[in-house]
């Protein structure tokens, strides 16, 4: 269907045009400034696929299927545009360790802001991240990196708001958490069921966080070097729901 719509100069434009309102062939001819034969051929092709219909008043209208195809196509186009807009973020980082299923699911972040370090705010992404963690109660993290400052801020928030941390990490990172001098917080939060953690051997190189207030993504330059200078950030309510679903889907996938 993608090919059917994309290779024709007129079919896609006719479909998009009829999505907005029903029209007669005369109206379409005048809008497109094309010969009626071309318009008729395009309309007949769309009609034979069930994407449009000819009504009793001789107007052409989009069908339910045509409407859904247009919605899905519009979504694909928006996704392409967002990928292009955040091109540098995607190209600067390695996606190799992220399974395709999860790469697709991460598309809810496509419309997010890229927050970058700059010469006057060198730690801008980290500062914004920590500022938002301090406002968060329910926190879910895929953690392939360790930083004491991250963990301490998370503990403070959970204690302050009587919150909860759901954590996916590796044995190595867990060792570092436990060996740090704030391990007593971690242990007591685990004991009080304020922290649930899942240990995996093979974690994707994504430092992903989703909370009740924001979601963020940091990536790696390559297989080993973490990039703290760029972060995708979003605090839209619908995106947060998607982010929670992504986390749960990832957890289900790795704990299967």
């Amino acid at each position: 269907m993608l090919k059917f719509l994309m290779v024709s100069e007129i079919r896609l434009k006719l479909l998009f045009n009829l999505y907005e309102s029903s029209k007669s062939i005369k109206e379409l001819e005048s809008e497109f400034q094309k010969k009626s034969g071309n318009i008729s051929r395009g309309l007949n092709e769309l009609k034979s696929c069930g994407l449009i219909t000819r009504q009793s008043n001789k107007q052409y209208a989009i069908t339910s299927t045509g409407y859904l195809v247009t919605q899905n196509l519009k979504d694909l186009m928006k996704t392409f545009e967002n990928i292009d807009n955040n091109r540098a973020f995607w190209e600067n980082h390695s996606l190799k360790s992220i399974p395709n299923k999860h790469l697709k699911e991460l598309s809810f972040l496509n419309d997010s802001s890229v927050i970058k370090s700059n010469i006057t705010e060198f730690a801008k992404p980290i500062n914004i991240y920590l500022k938002n963690i301090k406002l968060s109660k329910d926190i879910r993290i895929i953690l392939p990196v360790y930083s004491k400052i991250f963990m301490d801020t998370i503990y403070d928030s959970i204690i302050l708001y009587d919150g909860h941390l759901d954590l996916i990490t590796t044995e190595n990172i867990l060792d570092l958490i436990i060996k740090s001098d704030s391990d007593r917080y971690f242990r007591s939060l685990v004991r009080d069921k304020k922290v649930d953690y899942y240990i995996v051997d093979d974690i994707a190189n994504i430092f992903f966080t989703t909370t009740n207030t924001f979601t963020s993504l940091f990536l790696f330059f390559d297989d080993v070097v973490f990039d703290s200078s760029e972060m995708l950030f979003n605090d839209d309510e619908l995106v947060l729901k998607e982010a929670e679903r992504f986390y749960e889907s990832y957890k289900e996938h790795i704990t299967d």
Partner: peptide, 30 residues
């Protein structure tokens, strides 16, 4: 390029939507 990979994933995804729509076109149009 990473963006090519991401776009291909989404094109394949659209094809899945299109398969569903094509197979149920009569039911949906009613």
């Amino acid at each position: 390029y990473n963006r090519t990979k991401l776009k291909i994933i989404h094109m394949l995804n659209f094809n899945k939507s299109a398969k569903f729509l094509r197979e149920n076109v009569e039911y949906l149009n009613d």
